[in-house]
Write a protein that binds this DNA or RNA. Structure first.
Length: 543
DNA sequence: AAGAGTATCAACCGCACGTTT
DNA sequence: CAAACGTGCGGTTGATACTCT
């Protein structure tokens, strides 16, 4: 940033100084507020003001000092640049470690993280993190060091006797500021044969996608505050995904079609979704079942999802129900790998409707999609028979879905897999569906289907003994199609598909279908593509 | 050397929340 | 009780610096 040390306004500064947005914005008592880079003269004025009046009451700065800056700008300038004891320069290795650790615990809580880094500002940390994400995206590296994951895993395994005490209002949120379980399942690849629960930074905004796809009508029962929670939910996804939130970033990859698709799609199927209602409404804690080590985003999210963990922890993190306690009381998994095996082995035959099964086999997104598809289909057929949805997860059911698989594609796919894409955006971009549609239908079309990227290689090839030996258990969950197959999602009827995409679109997809993958257990997967790119898949039972 | 692409960083914006009026 | 106000936070933007081709 150019900062005119001489206090001379640059052109932009001059321009921005003249900007007055409307009657109220940009002016105070008729004084045009300046924007843009601060000059040293302004800094001096601000410092002087703070010396005399102390911090706070920033809106009075202009009044008392004549500085033509809004209070917010003054506060920001002071906090980020002028206040004493600010540490400038690059982060030290220790600081970087701490940031990674804190981010694993807190998510995008920059201000809170800054509290642990004396002399550093939230803005610095945020910038550093975003930069780091991009860097690692490019490198195809995991976002969190594997040691951290292993540490977390070990801790998690030590507390496998969790019996699911649920106290939704136990101040989990509050505790998160200080005592956050070091549970981050990330980048297990290095230590666990490539299985990673934690996305490096997939930008699949699964939750937002879900929220969009769920749509208001079906989920009006979310009640007041749902929007707020939705926002928080989105934030959480950013943590998981590293999604900057910037739509532009969604396709920042040099080859978004190729580089990010796998992970995008895979992760679109993996992210846990926390029912906005359940989040704050003291839901039953399905972890009581305790049989699954993986937190299912829906059911085991206890009440108010911890802002850092409940919402922002990776799906595989256990939702701590008592933040005051240590991890000893956390809903603990009977061992992650064991659970993985269980999950892999568990029959993905049906969509389990019972909310008491937190089996991660039920992918929340998938179920949601099925549900939506059927709902739409049902609506389309103008059927008044509500039971038509009986085989599909209801919102409540969805809330019990689990879906916590973080996959690591790097091992078998793209070594360089910049994620950074939102499924929604992908879909919007890669399908002929207008993303700008304003109608619900349009949004459905645009948002409901992430581009389910299916590996181009034949499925059975992937299951070759050699590969299986190489990746004993991991691959089942590192493939989106495997996720699909194991998710219990199947039988998405063509009419449902049509309802979602429109008959014409479905037809288009079919016309360009490039893969027709048979999988075991009497199912088949039809892969629909568009523009020669896999767009989504449909699993159905073989005759 | 020049242009393109990427990284970095400061600052802005909108929103949420708590407090005051 | 509601509106206004002040503050803080997180996401985003845009300009410059840097690197690569």
């Amino acid at each position: 940033m150019v900062e005119s040390d001489d206090g001379v306004l640059s052109k932009d500064q001059m321009d921005s100084s003249l900007v007055g947005k409307g009657k109220d914005k940009g002016t105070i008592d008729g004084v045009v507020l300046k924007k843009g880079p601060w000059t040293s003269a302004e800094d001096a004025i601000l410092v002087d003001y703070v010396k005399k009046h102390g911090e706070g009451n920033w809106n009075a700065v202009q009044k008392y000092s004549g500085l033509s800056r809004c209070g917010k700008s003054c506060r920001l300038r002071w906090a980020n640049h002028l206040r004493p004891n600010l540490k400038k320069g690059a982060f030290s290795a220790d600081e970087e470690r701490l940031i990674v650790d804190l981010h694993a615990k807190m998510g995008n809580k920059w201000a809170r993280m800054a509290a642990y880094l004396p002399g550093r500002t939230d803005n610095e940390i945020k910038n550093y993190w975003n930069t780091r994400i991009k860097r690692r995206q490019r490198a195809g590296l995991p976002l969190y060091p594997s040691e951290l994951c292993m540490q977390v895993m070990q801790e998690g395994q030590q507390c496998s006797n969790f019996n699911g005490i649920n106290d939704a209002n136990n101040g989990f949120f509050e505790s998160s500021s200080g005592q956050i379980p070091d549970v981050v399942f990330d980048s297990l690849k290095a230590n666990q044969g490539g299985f990673s629960f934690f996305p490096e930074h997939s930008d699949v905004s699964a939750s937002s996608l879900l929220m969009k796809s769920l749509g208001p009508p079906q989920f009006s029962s979310f009640g007041p505050g749902a929007l707020i929670r939705q926002k928080r939910l989105q934030e959480s996804i950013y943590l998981y995904s590293g999604f900057s939130g910037n739509p532009k970033d969604a396709f920042s990859s040099s080859n978004p079609f190729e580089d990010g698709r796998r992970e995008k799609i895979a992760r679109s199927l993996e992210y846990s979704y926390h029912d906005p209602v359940e989040e704050n409404s003291l839901p039953s804690f399905d972890a009581v079942q305790g049989s699954h080590s993986f937190t299912n985003g829906f059911s085991s999210a206890p009440g108010p999802i911890p802002e850092a963990l409940g919402l922002e922890l990776p799906s595989l993190q256990y939702i701590e129900t008592d933040m005051g306690s240590s991890w000893d009381t956390s809903p603990s998994p009977p061992g992650l790998l064991e659970s993985v095996d269980k999950l892999i082995q568990s029959p993905p035959r049906s969509v389990k409707l019972d909310s008491d099964c937190p089996s991660p086999c039920n992918n929340g997104l998938l179920e949601t999609l099925v549900y939506e598809a059927k709902t739409l289909s049902s609506a389309k057929n103008q059927s008044s028979d509500k039971s038509s949805n009986s085989s599909a997860p209801t919102p409540g059911d969805i809330s019990s879905s689990s879906n916590i698989y973080k996959t690591e594609w790097d091992d078998y796919g793209n070594p360089i897999s910049p994620l950074g894409h939102s499924a929604t955006s992908i879909f919007n971009e890669q399908t002929p569906i207008s993303a700008s549609g304003s109608s619900l239908d349009d949004r459905m079309h645009a948002d409901i289907f992430p581009v389910s990227n299916v590996k181009e290689e034949p499925f059975n090839q992937f299951q070759s003994p050699e590969r299986e030996q190489k990746f004993p258990t991991q691959y089942e969950y590192t493939r989106p199609d495997a996720l699909l197959a194991s998710s219990g999602w199947f039988g998405l009827q063509s009419d449902s598909m049509a309802a979602l995409l429109g008959d014409d679109l479905t037809s288009d997809y079919k016309q360009t279908a490039e893969a027709y993958v048979s999988i075991d257990q009497g199912e088949r997967m039809d892969v629909y593509s568009w523009n020669n790119m896999p767009a989504f898949c449909q699993i159905s039972e073989l005759p």
